[in-house]
Each structure stands twice: as C-alpha cells, then as structure tokens.
Simulated assay, not measured.
Amino acid sequence: MQTTATLSTKGGTGKTTGSSNLGALSADAGLRTLLIDLDTSQPTLSSYFQLDYTAPGGVYDLLVHNIVDADKVISRTRIPNLDIILSNDPHNQLETLLLHAPDGRLRLRSLLTRLPNDYDLVIIDTKGTAAVTVEMALVAANNVISPLYPEMLAAREFHRGTLQLFQGVNNLRRTLGLDELPLNVVFNRQDNSNDARDIAFEIRDMLGTMDDSVKVLETHIPALVTYRVAASQGIPAHHLERTKPSSRRAASALQTMQQVACEVWPHWKQRFEGV
C-alpha cells in the first residue's frame, strides 16, 4: 500500500483539488484508492464527490475510537474503486485528544494497516496549518505532495512554514527508525505568461539548493477554469476535459493529471497512461 499526504501550511493552495483529482485518476486506472479527509476545519474533500454509501462515522471514529470496520468509517463514492473516510470532529476535540495521546503522531500509521480493504493507494488531505493531525499524516505517509503558487511570496512562506514542518517530521521519522520522506512540489495555477515561467524557474532553482528530499515536479498544473467547473459539478477534472482545446497552449486536465501522477508514483506509469 502506497500512502501519500498533501502538505501546505498555507490554506487555499490546491491540496484538496489535487487530492480529489489524483485520487479519481488512480481509481480510473484500476487502483483501489482511499481518500482520507483530515482537514477538520475546512473539510472540502468530504463533499467533493457524490456518495453511493455514507458511513455513519469518519476520521474521528477511526482515530479516537480506533474503529476500522469498513461499514462504520469508510464511505463509497460513485466512482468505482474510490472510497473516502469523511472528516468529522463533532466537538472540535480531535487535535487536542491526539496532542495528549502518547501515540498521537503514530496512530494513523498503525490504523492504516488494520483497515479491512486492500487498498493500493491512500491519499491523505490535510489542513493548511501546522497541526498534530498534519504531523500524524506525514508519519503515516510514504511520500508527500505540496502544491505551490509560482510566486516569490508564496515560495518564502513555503520555506518558513511548510518546509520547516516537513523537515521537523523527517527528524521525528529518523528517531522512529522510518525512512525519510520525499517531498514533491507541484506548481499550481500557473499561467502561460513569461513572468510566471521566469518566477517558477527561479523558485525551482531556489528549492533545488535547500534539501535533497525536496523535488519540484516537471509538470505544473495550469490556471484553468476547468478545475473550478469540475469541482462545482463534483466530478474529476479529467472526466470534464480529456483532450486539449485546439485554441489553447496548456495541456488538457487528463494529460496534466496523468503527468503529475506518473512523476509522483512512477511504478504505476503504465496504468495512468492507460486512462
């Protein structure tokens, strides 16, 4: 089982858009995929897709009561192979309970091994701030995706917040005897202007000198209305746009998501390219 977490200590960068679209692409590629919505403050992923079955519980029941019964905590979307554990924190206690639990940061890693369904890929969507649930997701993950606007102010915030949190969790992982996490940075909502490309090149060069575990993906997600329209309709962007309009330079949503997925999970490249 491959487990991937999204990461950004700044809200609104596109973590949920990336999680939902990459999860749906993976499901269409025949991979049994589980989404986990750990953003209890803005649980957008929980309402992104229509559901065929809504479980009575969610992340609170999983993490606080250790419930791993699929019918009780795992909901099923209308997309074949795509399930989700919905965000729920009825009394806003999850962060506090995990913070004071002796195994708080390790709990999700342990529980994932006990889930009854044999998932190929788990994608964990996190909140846009430093929090124990974010650290818990990074301890459970095999790799990380971090969307970043191609702007210098966003890059500086990434360095002060996201990268600092990421490095702290990697230090924790080393003390636990776990492998160091790789971080995949993907430029999101990048337009085709020369200015945006120049800034992206400068940020790529800057990040390349910071940490060997940080990689900037060659693929960027363009600033297209397609992704907003797909989200409003509750469907994956690649279902809405499979081919590139002849009048546009940017790749289609399908091609973009395929390229991102192939960079993040290269061992499934043939599956993604076959969608």
Rank of each mutant, 00 (worst) to 15 (best):
F158T: 01
H159S: 09
H159A: 09
R160K: 05
G161D: 05
Q164L: 13
Q164M: 14
Q164E: 15
F166T: 11
Q167R: 15
Q167K: 15
Q167Y: 08
V169P: 10
N170T: 07
L172H: 05
L172S: 13
R174T: 15
L176R: 10
L178I: 09
L178E: 08
E180S: 11
L181T: 03
L181A: 05
L181D: 06
L183R: 01
L183H: 01
N184D: 10
V185Q: 05
V185K: 06
V186C: 01
V186K: 03
V186T: 06
F187H: 05
R189Q: 15
R189H: 11
R189P: 05
Q190C: 14
Q190M: 15
N192P: 09
N192S: 15
S193A: 11
S193Y: 09
N194V: 14
D195H: 13
A196C: 06
A196K: 03
R197L: 12
R197M: 10
R197V: 01
D198C: 10
I199D: 04
A200S: 09
A200K: 06
F201P: 03
F201C: 09
E202Q: 13
E202K: 11
E202A: 11
I203P: 01
R204E: 12
D205Q: 13
L207Q: 04
L207S: 03
L207F: 07
L207R: 05
G208C: 09
T209P: 04
D212Y: 05
D212G: 07
S213Y: 04
T219P: 02
H220W: 12
P222H: 12
L224G: 01
L224R: 10
L224V: 11
L224M: 08
V229Q: 12
A230Q: 06
S232M: 08
H239M: 00
H239S: 00
L240S: 00
L240I: 00
